[in-house]
Design a protein around this nucleic acid. Structure first.
Length: 277
DNA sequence: AACTACAGCAACCGCAGGTCT
DNA sequence: AAGACCTGCGGTTGCTGTAGT
């Protein structure tokens, strides 16, 4: 008795989502919350696979998503996290509020990888590309340079180790810091270089994910500090989406948007652009 | 202007792990 | 304990827009 396919292949639509489908999905989730993705398509009146609905929501429709290219600081953080976590995009994304694993993965493959290669850094190991030849020259005189993160594929274990050597931090940062510029990059560097701060963040997140999740559910999104409900949905998030949909109908764009935060504006812009298409 | 090659990104697929019965 | 089911993750694919010729 084999596993049941995630969705009944017949009559299931694939490919790009239409604005109409998006609307249906948003409406459904706002009304019912995120529950049982498998049932969502039927209940929402969509001819889509539940998986596809979940992906569409998490990667595109969620109102707390940032859109647009990663900033220099975010990029730097991704590089640093990648050096510790490897290709665990969801873990990396969890530390970048408003960014999705898919987005980060794509950005890594299309931009950061090339950037690192140009800088002479192996994007997989985060070691200098010419390290091997360097090692050949250096092994005779120096055997202490063995502390880089990719040694014997230990990237992944570092997360649970929770103790990251300062050499590790500095190696990835020092190799890439030349590419950063601007205040936020400097701030990020100082944070990343602050060993105790970084370690406490790692430890805190392991023991209590909500600590860092509170960054995700930043005050802009949750001004009243609402807690997650049973469905894992923020009431205020639902509220904000609900009024966003209402706004569409009433043409709120004319009202002056200064009072809206970026996240709400992003969601609004997404919907607006798709309306135009 | 037409064609080709490439880059970027959204979406799909298959698998693994967790939960429930 | 075992099997069924569901969700989430990471790798990959394929479409679309754009730059180059």
């Amino acid at each position: 008795m084999g596993r049941q396919p995630c969705c009944d292949k017949l009559g299931v639509k694939k490919g790009p989502w239409t604005a109409e489908e998006d609307k249906k999905l948003i409406n459904f989730i706002l009304t019912n919350g995120q529950c049982c993705w498998r049932a969502v398509p039927k209940l929402a009146g969509l001819r889509r696979c539940g998986k596809s609905c979940r992906l569409r929501w998490t990667n595109y429709l969620r109102p707390d998503l940032k859109r647009g290219l990663l900033t220099e600081a975010e990029e730097q953080l991704v590089i640093d996290l990648h050096s510790r976590l490897g290709n665990r995009w969801s873990k990396i994304a969890a530390r970048l509020p408003g960014r999705t694993d898919n987005e980060i993965k794509n950005h890594w493959n299309t931009h950061i990888k090339k950037k690192l290669l140009k800088m002479g850094i192996d994007p997989v190991t985060h070691e200098p590309l010419h390290k091997e030849s360097m090692d050949n020259k250096e092994t005779s005189t120096e055997n202490t340079n063995n502390n880089l993160p990719a040694q014997s594929g230990n990237n992944q274990s570092q997360e649970t180790d929770s103790v990251v050597t300062s050499e590790d931090n500095n190696s990835s940062l020092s190799q890439t810091e030349n590419s950063s510029s601007g205040d936020d990059s400097l701030l990020l560097e100082s944070i990343c270089n602050d060993e105790s701060l970084m370690n406490s963040l790692w430890v805190e997140e392991e023991s209590n994910p909500l600590v860092l999740d509170s960054l995700w559910n930043c005050p802009d999104v949750v001004p009243n500090g609402d807690k997650l409900n049973d469905m894992g949905i923020l009431p205020s998030l639902e509220d904000s989406c609900a009024w966003l949909l209402d706004c569409q109908d009433f043409g709120i764009h004319d009202f002056g948007l200064d009072c809206f935060n970026d996240i709400e504006l992003n969601a609004l812009n997404n919907l607006e652009m798709e309306e135009k298409q």
